[in-house]
Amino acid sequence: MNAPSPAPSVNSVLLVEDDADLRAAVADILEDEGFEVHVAENGQDALAELDALGHLGLRPCLVLLDLMMPVMDGFTFMERFRADPGLSQVPVVVLSASVKEPPEGACAMLRKPFEIPALLNTVADYCGRA
């Protein structure tokens, strides 16, 4: 990421989730609340999306990250993400059914299945209301 680190957008969220239905449900809820939701199916997609946003001079205020995903899982994504000084400032909230501890660098974790209030409260903690 050679682009200069843009200022984070207050209502832009990157949702990384391989389950299409859940991805759509979460995106709908957040969009209903006025968030701009970027989606990615796995870690690799997410990195590409972040790169693309970066080129546009955009940076999300929060990454909602599933852990168990094909192609590139959440853990690998976190390693790459943290290695990028431009991105490492962006908070990451892990969405997972796993009992395992969240990967290093994650700010919080929402255990699946989570409910709408929990989702909205968590997102509100890191981003301003749209």
Binding site: D21, A24, A25, D28, I29, A97, S98, P113, E115
Partner: peptide, 21 residues
């Protein structure tokens, strides 16, 4: 299975709750 069930379950719950709102 129980782990993988959570994604669709979560989608159902979130959607149902959203609908009730």
């Amino acid at each position: 299975v129980s782990h993988d069930l959570r994604n669709p379950l979560n989608a159902i719950q979130l959607s149902a709750t959203q609908l009730l709102h």
